[in-house]
Design a protein around this nucleic acid. Structure first.
Lengths: 248, 248
DNA sequence: CGACAACTTGACGGGCGTCAACCGGAGTGG
DNA sequence: CCACTCCGGTTGACGCCCGTCAAGTTGTCG
């Protein structure tokens, strides 16, 4: 939970963020300079740390630099639903750029390092540099598209398909973000968290993962996943990457 | 399906749209003028008509003027999931402002009249009038917030709670949009559509509506709904309107 | 090496899907 | 004005998928 203040460390800290925005909208050199020189407060947090809590007033947006994170909501009875997972380079709460109070929680899935960027500075850059504003807007629109797909996933697919779909999405987003092979990677979340994301219980997640293993579409050793039969997994999950809009 | 061309009929056509944006961000008189003089092509469509189809290239955004609409996606096996319902005044596909190809379908739930506004003109106004751009962005962010709540709804609530929550949301949005009493209204969608929105079957929707009636929290006569015990319904659905951000 | 969390597996039950039959209202044609 | 049709709503019987509970195993970190 060490927290140091690096207001403007020129070299590379926000470069992954710039690369992502530049994939969404072609940016000019001045845009790049403006993004890279945004003030950012670095923080390293342990696995499970709450980065933003529902109801909290937010003055800094949270950019994920290393590790994995998720966003989640809860019912009054305590049922927990994860609504998205996030990879390094993702902005975790861009909606706070226009809404000052959080309507859901953001949590670190693994140990993670994040950069806090004042919402006021992001607002300025979005207003003064239309291309940057458009890239940020596009990012939130992709978010929304993924939410829609998740509504479909938990609403209309059976347990095995939901899991297959989740694995496909995770692999596809990893690849799109340039984080390595989509066929062999480590799945950072616990089976409990996978259940919270798919609307299942941890027990049933375990059963269905076994089923996918026995089917021969994936191999699994602890958190290491290997997708053996991509087309098979794709078919089981009904996965069509269009909704990711080639990014996220 | 009559379709006439009224490019700029000054009086009131886009006024509901302006009022909605003005609730999201305080707009200036010039903003109002710019919005009201947007070119709009009116169309009247029958119940069930597809307004936008997945995969289609979109050059006009669709604004709902009268009637009700929904957006939906399907699994490869044909399972249908409605991801949102829409009221008069709602923009049905604002994401097409930045993404040219539809990743889901838009459909009229009742007979409806819509206004088609060229995406190019909306883009211009969003770029040249920051307040309008911000209002539009906010609108898409509220959309996203509602999607997150729906993921929670279908993922973590039982059938009765899902229905109660859906009724609460519909009533609250009606009221926020100034469409009349939140306690007594007509529910425009069929039980099949309610099922598609909540991840249930029409049969089970019917059973749970009966349960809510027997509980005494609602009265129902055909499509006419009366919420007898708002606090009871709210509690059953675990409804907290914060996620609506006082608008939509 | 001990403690604790996460994973694994089995037994059992219930919520919701499926199938099927019937009803009722709205539109249509004679 | 009535018969016919059709779509949506209503209700019951039955079964399965997935939740729940519980016990045991494995992995991990101090």
């Amino acid at each position: 939970m060490a927290s140091k203040i690096d207001t403007t460390e020129e070299p590379p800290i926000l470069r992954p963020f710039f690369r992502k925005l530049n994939r969404l909208v072609q940016l000019a050199d001045e845009d790049e300079q403006a993004i890279l020189s945004l003030p950012a407060r670095l923080e390293e947090v342990p696995s499970g740390h709450d980065l933003v809590r529902e109801g909290q007033e937010v003055r800094e947006c949270c950019l994920l630099l290393q590790g994995y994170a998720c966003r989640h909501k809860s019912t009054e009875e305590g049922g927990r639903q994860i609504v998205s997972f996030h990879l390094p380079g993702d902005m975790l709460d861009l909606q706070h750029l226009l809404f000052p109070v959080a309507d859901h929680n953001v949590q670190a899935v693994t140990a993670a390092t994040v950069a806090w960027i004042p919402t006021a500075d992001l607002q300025s850059i979005a207003l003064e540099r239309p291309a940057v504003g458009q890239a940020l807007w596009r990012d939130t629109l992709i978010d929304a598209s993924i939410f829609r797909e998740w509504v479909l996933n938990v609403g209309r697919r059976d347990a095995r398909s939901r899991l297959a779909h989740m694995l496909c999405e995770f692999a596809a987003r990893r690849q799109a973000a340039g984080l390595g092979s989509p066929e062999h990677f480590t799945l950072p979340m616990s089976q409990e968290q996978i259940g919270d994301a798919t609307g299942l219980t941890a027990v049933h997640v375990n059963r269905m993962l076994r089923s996918l293993r026995e089917e021969g579409v994936i191999e699994q050793k602890n958190k290491a996943i290997r997708i053996v039969d991509w087309e098979g997994l794709r078919r089981i999950g009904g996965f069509d990457p269009t909704y990711l809009h080639a990014a996220a």
